[in-house]
Amino acid sequence: MNQIKFVVAGALALLGVLVIGGYYADPAPKATEEKSAAAGGTLRIGVDGTEPAYYKVDGVTKGFDYEMALGVAEGMGAKPEFVVMEFSDLFPALQAGKIDMIGAQVTETAERKQDFDFSAPYFVTYLSFLTPEDSTIKTRDDINGKNVAIVEGTIQERYLEEQYENVNIIKAKDEDSAVKAIQSGEADAFFYDAPYTAPIIHRAPIPLKEAIVYPADDAPIGFVMQKGDERKEQVDSALEQMILDGAWLKIKKEYFKEYPLSEVFKDKGA
């Protein structure tokens, strides 16, 4: 699981805005009834039903990825259909053609790109260190030399190895096990995806705080599609328009107002 920040002063400035890390260097044409493979049809979007990506409050559907997918479908002229399943089932469902696109805070990685196509980014991965409330850990420099728990198999393990010195990695099978490592004194902090820490803090048996939150600009989050799906260009075009007209920033502020703006989007009017 898993993600990014999206003014224009004249025509030349507009051309510059269209480039976000190379993803928008060659913008696709707007979807039309003639050109869009999805126009007038249904776009089936696989989601994992987890806050803040896709969830319900008093019967009303909400979520950052949900609202981004709605905007994309509208830009394509397609009718969105959301299919809720476990995160581990999303990729097999996409391969089997049961869904057309995954929208579930999926981080783009070299391994995943071997088998799937990713849209232009609509977010970046935000990383977080959870600590006891009385912890002396306050900055990223404080992590060096500490025992840090991660959920085995997540991107956090690679980041700890690459970006921090002398960190002892404590591998846990799931979030609750990582919190137990802090409770027992085995770990000083738990390194995890920031958007998903609220429920962990809420159910933790000990008082925890989100001591550090920062964007990983080299870990973009995008919609996932089958290799060669021609609708990817239409998705990218719709995302581009949402960034340029401010719709993306409005959605970001609704769900992640407290998160610092990623460098990926700071010079794009966001």
Rank of each mutant, 00 (worst) to 15 (best):
L14Q: 14
D117T: 09
G16A: 10
Y23C: 11
G77H: 07
G10H: 11
Y55D: 13
K252I: 03
V235E: 08
K138G: 08
L14W: 07
N144F: 03
S135K: 04
G153P: 01
A172I: 10
K113A: 13
S262E: 07
K146G: 02
Y23V: 10
Y24H: 14
G41A: 07
E230W: 00
D89K: 15
V84K: 09
E34G: 03
V84I: 13
D236C: 02
P207D: 05
S184Q: 11
A93I: 09
A13L: 04
F64K: 09
Y126P: 12
I99C: 04
A181I: 09
M1C: 04
A11K: 14
P215Y: 01
A204W: 00
S262K: 03
V60R: 06
Q114P: 00
A211L: 09
N147M: 11
G41V: 06
A270G: 13
E152H: 07
A104P: 05
A172F: 05
P205K: 06
G97D: 10
M1I: 14
G59E: 07
A270P: 05
T197H: 04
P27F: 07
E254Q: 13
P220C: 05
R44T: 13
S119Q: 06
D217M: 05
I251P: 05
D115R: 03
Q241H: 08
V179E: 08
K268W: 01
T107D: 08
A73P: 03
A149H: 00
I212V: 13
Y66R: 06
V19K: 10
V57E: 15
Y159E: 15
Y164D: 02
V72K: 09
Y55A: 15
G75Q: 07
F129A: 13
T32E: 04
K171L: 14
M76F: 00
P121C: 11
D176E: 13
A28K: 05
E152I: 07
V167W: 04
S135H: 05
L244F: 03
V124G: 03
E165W: 00
Y66F: 14
V83Y: 06
E165H: 01
D229Y: 02
I137W: 02
K146R: 11
Y55H: 14
K232S: 03
E186I: 14
E74V: 13
D176L: 08
M225K: 08
V84Q: 12
E233Y: 00
E233A: 15
T50A: 15
L18K: 09
K173Y: 01
G46W: 00
A37D: 13
I143H: 02
D26M: 08
E233M: 04
I201F: 00
R112F: 00
I200N: 02
G63Q: 11
L160Q: 04
K227W: 04
I169N: 04
A194G: 06
M225D: 07
E162M: 13
E86G: 06
V179T: 07
Y259I: 10
D174H: 06
R158F: 01
Y192C: 15
Q234V: 15
V213N: 01
K5C: 01
Q163V: 01
T32G: 05
F6Q: 15
A219N: 04
E34D: 08
A53N: 13
D117R: 05
L94M: 02
G103I: 10
A178D: 10
G153D: 12
S36K: 03
A39L: 03
Y24W: 08
G97Q: 09
